[in-house]
Computed example of a mutant assay.
Amino acid sequence: MKTDDLVSLLSNSGGAADPMMVSSRYWQAMVISTGGALILLLIGYGLRPDLSVMLGTPLFWARLAFPAVIAVGALMVVARLARPGVSVGRSWTVMALPVIVVIVAAVLTLGLAPASERLSMVLGATWRSCPFNIAFLSIPGFIANFWLLRNMAPTRLRVAGAAAGLLAGSAATIVYCLHCPEMEVAFWAVWYIAGMLIPAVIGAVLAPRLLRW
């Protein structure tokens, strides 16, 4: 068969792409990310005992909004990087903005606090375990996001892998907030970001092998 005949056959026989298919895959990945993280949290760590009280405090919701906005930005970036030739545009700023806000707030709160309290504000009581707990909770989302990308056509593999890992990490951080006792902004600015970066770095490293097509 000649090349022109093959192209003609493929173009005539191909049906219209389902516009809901891609959207459905994104939703499936997000459900697996958050649902899987929640299951791991309940099995491994449990909810903080005063969660019902914390739900009534603005600071708790501010802490929850921090990874949630990052997750929205990461999802926007993943959605664009999953398609070849699509520019990321300003989606990066959606991820960067909450990080900048939290870092600035952390610097301000540390500057206003007595020098003797600053270290404890950064370290809290769980700094040794927090980033690794977040990375552990991100495993279902990491798998789901890479499954999503493998069914798409990313070309910037390392960047796409990093964004997929960050999306998994931010979704895991949202869930981890239901357990974590730390309420200092300085703590979030260091250890929450570190926890989200672990799957992002792993995603960037593994992407050329896992996403090659």
Rank of each mutant, 00 (worst) to 15 (best):
L119A: 14
I70E: 03
A96Y: 11
V88A: 15
M20D: 04
N12G: 15
W92D: 12
R83Q: 15
G35K: 02
E184T: 12
M95P: 07
W61D: 08
A162S: 10
A144Q: 03
Y176M: 00
L55E: 08
C177E: 06
Y26G: 13
M30N: 13
M21C: 11
G195F: 00
T3A: 09
I100R: 00
P98E: 00
A172G: 00
A71C: 14
I139P: 08
L110W: 02
V77W: 08
I198C: 00
D50L: 06
M30Y: 09
H179W: 11
L210P: 04
L59F: 14
V102Q: 03
Y192I: 01
L167H: 09
A204W: 01
G169K: 02
G36A: 07
L42Y: 12
I32G: 09
V86Y: 06
R83K: 14
P67M: 07
A186F: 09
W188I: 10
I103F: 10
I198S: 01
G36T: 06
A113G: 08
L178S: 14
G46D: 11
S138Y: 05
E117D: 02
R80L: 05
V86C: 05
T3F: 05
T57I: 13
R128M: 15
F132P: 02
T34I: 11
P140R: 12
G44A: 14
F66G: 00
V159Q: 14
V53Y: 12
I39Q: 10
A171Q: 04
N151S: 13
A144G: 09
S8M: 06
C180I: 12
V175R: 06
A82I: 00
V99L: 08
Y26C: 10
L42V: 13
S120L: 08
I139A: 13
A65K: 01
R25G: 10
T93H: 15
S8F: 09
S116T: 04
L211Q: 04
I43R: 08
P140K: 10
V122P: 07
L206F: 11
A168S: 14
S120P: 00
V122Y: 13
L210V: 06
A186P: 12
A168E: 04
V72K: 08
L55I: 08
V72L: 15
L148A: 08
L51I: 12
A153R: 13
P181I: 08
G203Y: 01
F60N: 13
P208C: 11
M20I: 03
V86P: 09
V78M: 12
R158Q: 10
A163L: 10
L148H: 06
L108C: 07
A16F: 15
G14Y: 13
A207D: 01
I143C: 02
M20Y: 12
L211W: 09
A164V: 01
S87D: 15
A172E: 00
L108R: 10
P84Y: 14
A71N: 08
R128V: 13
A68H: 03
W147F: 14
L137W: 08
V88W: 07
V175Q: 10
S116E: 13
L211P: 01
L211A: 11
